[in-house]
Simulated scan of single mutants.
Amino acid sequence: MTTDVTSRPATGQETTASVRRITDDLLQRVEHRLGSFLAAERERFAGVDERAALVLDTLSELVTSGGKRIRPAFCITGYLAAGGDPGDPGIVAAAAGLEMLHVSALIHDDVLDNSAQRRGKPTMHTAFSALHQDRGWRGEARRYGEGMAILIGDLALVYSDELMSQAPPGVRAEWHGLRSEVHVGQCLDVTAAAEFSVDPRLSRLIALIKSGRYTIHRPLVMGAGGADRADLAAAFMEYGEAVGEAFQLRDDLLDAFGDSAETGKPAGLDFSQHKMTLLLGWAMQRDERIRVLMTEPGHTPDEVRRRLLDTGVPEDVEQHIADLVERGRKAIADAPVAPVWRNELADMAVRVTYRNN
């Protein structure tokens, strides 16, 4: 048996540097697992038809185009903090399954939001629409592009389940709840945008179940379950829900005020799609004119941004984010894991919320 640090279970003597090396090693193995899985699928389908190979190429390009791998990172951290063996390939499969689920959600999100850009490149439905137009095919290019994106997003969802079938048994129970929760949250998000009614309670609920829980809370609990540490679920839930909500609120601020060159996607999508985020809900409670700026023709996103700033709500959201991060850090302070892992989780709360490397 190898004595390399990456294959040894936690001993309680780790340093911050050593736990990050172990985590980074496992994340590299996740990358390799995703790449090898998709390469094998491409090889399988390339013999069927070249069009099928294009489907796998398109999915692989998105999977390997970057991304922060936040969900795999929290799953692996929860597993290692709980004393899991870094040499177990099951936790790598679980983390890869989480990332594949995330890719599925991104593809579908871009269709729902009519977004033209993801990670600095054309979104999948946009690219397929352009392909349809360039080749002069029959039918409507937009419907073809959106249809292909929906189907490939579904394929990624299928693959996420296939990867997760190789995870430790303690991971899979949480997995079933996570998948349904994400989809129900998406339905609530679409409905709230259509209703466009000011309801901060609903906005917070959507942020929690659509993003917060599936980004941090449930991946952490899945990791702990993989190490047979169900006793950590309560602390990880309190930490994960607070930090997960802060993470989503940061996304809301970046959508409203961020630079698309840095975020890799168009700014102001929440405005154009009438997303009832907590930021917008709070702002419209203070200034009814914002609703008019978002819904009536002739107004620009810059007008909405200026009005939002005038309400003072962005500063309130920043304070709420800081309070949530502090709540998460306190929740993990007494968790029954080694101090180095408590410190690492406290640092991760800050890194993911403020987008620090």
Rank of each mutant, 00 (worst) to 15 (best):
H320D: 11
E50T: 13
T126W: 14
S260C: 13
V190D: 13
N114T: 05
W341K: 13
F37H: 12
S197N: 12
L308M: 11
D49P: 02
I107C: 10
A10E: 07
S36T: 14
Q28T: 08
R291K: 14
G12S: 05
H217E: 15
T15E: 03
E43M: 14
R327K: 15
A234W: 06
R204S: 10
D25N: 12
I216S: 13
G47Q: 04
M148F: 06
G225I: 13
K265M: 13
V184T: 03
E41Y: 07
F74T: 01
R250N: 00
L101G: 04
F45L: 15
L163V: 03
V158D: 02
A52Q: 05
T77M: 08
R135D: 11
A194E: 15
S197W: 04
D251G: 07
D134C: 08
V182C: 05
S65C: 09
D109G: 04
P86F: 03
Q117G: 05
V48G: 00
R204C: 13
L254E: 10
R69F: 09
G212M: 01
D189Q: 01
H299Q: 04
I107E: 05
N357K: 09
D134L: 14
F37T: 11
I107K: 07
L249P: 02
Y239G: 15
L208D: 15
G78T: 00
E181I: 05
G139K: 09
A242N: 01
A230C: 03
Q28P: 08
P122S: 03
H176C: 11
T215M: 12
P297S: 08
V171N: 03
A81T: 02
D255H: 03
S7G: 12
H274F: 06
A322Y: 13
V304P: 10
T16D: 14
V340H: 14
R286M: 07
R21I: 11
A283R: 03
T277L: 10
Y144T: 08
G84E: 08
R213M: 14
P169Y: 05
D259P: 09
A94V: 09
F37A: 13
K68M: 02
E262N: 05
V158L: 15
T58S: 15
K68G: 06
G120T: 08
N356S: 12
A349N: 01
R229M: 06
W175V: 05
I290D: 14
S160R: 04
G268R: 00
R118Q: 02
R329L: 02
P169S: 08
L253G: 06
A346P: 06
L26I: 03
V171A: 06
E146L: 04
H108F: 04
G223Q: 03
T15K: 06
T3P: 12
T353F: 12
A234V: 11
A207V: 03
P9C: 05
G185M: 12
E43I: 10
